[in-house]
């Protein structure tokens, strides 16, 4: 038993280097059930995916999480100037909150391919119609439902 306890302690001591941040709990724990959503007018998802309203502060952490497909890999976000080396392969998100409604952003995050089938942008809340997903990600979305709502709350502050 002492050996086991020592092993657990050693594992915990190593944990900070590899353990996912709390933001990514949906990528490692039990697979959360997929929240159903309704598309209205082909361009919007008006109803939030969660009861809890989007939190722009957590949303800021969600969209800048470098180890989980951050927007900044591809997009520039001028209001996130403390993050260097922003990507330039997709349109700038400057003024995003003035250009779109939350309902429009929700569809674009959940599955932008419904609007632009050949877009390179990943669908952040989709599990089907994908090819050869790595075993540990099968059945999992890139963002949790709460991540989507929090991300939208943050993105709407970019004006």
């Amino acid at each position: 038993m002492v050996g086991l306890a020592a092993g657990v302690a050693a594992a915990q001591a190593q944990a900070p280097a590899t353990a996912p941040t709390p933001l990514q709990a949906h990528l490692t724990g039990p697979i959360p059930p997929l929240v159903k959503y309704e598309i209205v007018g082909n361009t919007t998802i008006p109803q939030p995916l969660t009861e809890r309203p989007g939190d722009p502060v957590r949303g800021r952490r969600v969209v800048t999480d470098a180890s989980n497909s951050t927007c900044l890999i591809c997009h520039e976000v001028p209001t996130l100037e403390e993050f260097p080396n922003q990507g330039k392969i997709a349109p700038s998100l400057e003024g995003l909150g003035s250009r779109y409604t939350a309902a429009e952003l929700r569809l674009r995050l959940v599955n932008p391919k419904l609007l632009v089938p050949d877009t390179m942008m990943p669908a952040y809340y989709r599990t089907e119609a994908l090819t050869r997903v790595q075993r540990q990600y099968v059945g999992r979305t890139i963002y949790s439902a709460q991540d989507i709502e929090d991300a939208i709350a943050f993105l709407m502050t970019i004006r």
């Binding site: 900044l72 890999i73 260097p84 080396n85 922003q86 990507g87 330039k88 994908l130 090819t131 890139i142």
Partner: peptide
């Protein structure tokens, strides 16, 4: 040319279509 994985991106999307562009830094 096949999109792959949870991120759903093919080799071609980056290395044919976007070579020379900045992916993060």
């Amino acid at each position: 040319n096949t999109r792959r994985g949870q991120i759903d991106i093919s080799c071609a999307m980056c290395h044919d279509d976007r070579a020379g562009m900045l992916l993060r830094g």
